[in-house]
Each structure stands twice: as C-alpha cells, then as structure tokens.
Amino acid sequence: MFVEINLALVSLIAAGGGGLLSVDQGLAFWTTLTFLLLLLLLKKYAWKPILEALKQRELAIKESLEKAEKAKEEAEKILSQNQANLAKAEEEAKKIIEQSRLYAENLKQQILNESKAQAKKMIDDATSEIERKNIAALDELKNQIAQIAIDAASKIIKENLDSQKNQKLVQDYLNEISKN
C-alpha cells in the first residue's frame, strides 16, 4: 500500500513534461547565466570592496586596541616611575631635614657652649675687675682714712707737729702693719 501511494505521488509530481521534478532546461540556462553574471559583477563591485573594508576595519580596530594597550602600559610605567621618584625625593628631603636638624643641634650646642664659656669668662673678668676695684677702693679708702686721720690729728696737735713729719710717721706705722 505504502509503495503504491509512493509511486502515485512520484508520478503525480513528475507527471509528464511539466511535473514538479522535471528540470526545465531553459530555466537552468537562465539560472546559470544569471548566477554567473551576478557572481562576477558582485565579486568586482561588492564583495571585494566590502571584504576589503571589513578587513581594514578589523585591522584598524586591532591596531588601535594595541595602541591603547601600549599607551596604558606606558602611562603605568610613567606613573610608577613618578611614584618612585616621589618616594626618593621624600626620602631625600627627610634626610636633608635630619641632617639640618643635626647640624642645627650641633650649632646650638656649640653656640651654647661658646656663650657659656664667654659668660663664664665675662663673669671671671668682672669678678677679677671687681676685686681689683675693691682693692683700689680699699687702698683709696685707706689713704683717705689716713688723710682724714692725719687731718684730724694735725688739727688736734696743730702747732707742734707739722703735717709732713706726722704723715711720715703714720705711713711708717701703716707699712709696719701691712708687713705684719
């Protein structure tokens, strides 16, 4: 049954000269001509420029991507370099500051010592000066006291003793005291 239906269908489709499965030579001829002409024309005027353009575009995209990648890498390199430079500069600055601090400390110490020494010297000088002045003043005082004593004594004794003789007497007496 199946075979019979099959056979019937085939004969229906391929019936006579104008069946569905009969190859029309004229159409085949036109198809060949049309297709080949289309192939040649499109190959020249469409496929070649289109495929070329697509390839070019792909290449351009690839290139620009690579370029961008390269630029990024370079920027990163520069950034890291900058960072390294910055760190180095900071370290150097720190070192300089440390050095100057040390120098200042030394200077301070030195100045302090110097001024201390100077002050001490000044104090010493002043002390010795004061001592000297004291001695001088004491001498002066001694002289004046002696003078006053002589004046007083000479006033008291007056006539019988002239001042020159008495002064010598007192001086001798004083010398005798300081010798002792």
Partner: peptide, 10 residues
C-alpha cells in the same frame, strides 16, 4: 528543481 540543480551543480 532546475534552479536548485543548477546551484548545486555550481
């Protein structure tokens, strides 16, 4: 079929 056969032949 003529068209498809031609295409297949190509």
């Amino acid at each position: 079929i003529a068209v498809t056969a031609t295409l297949a032949t190509l």
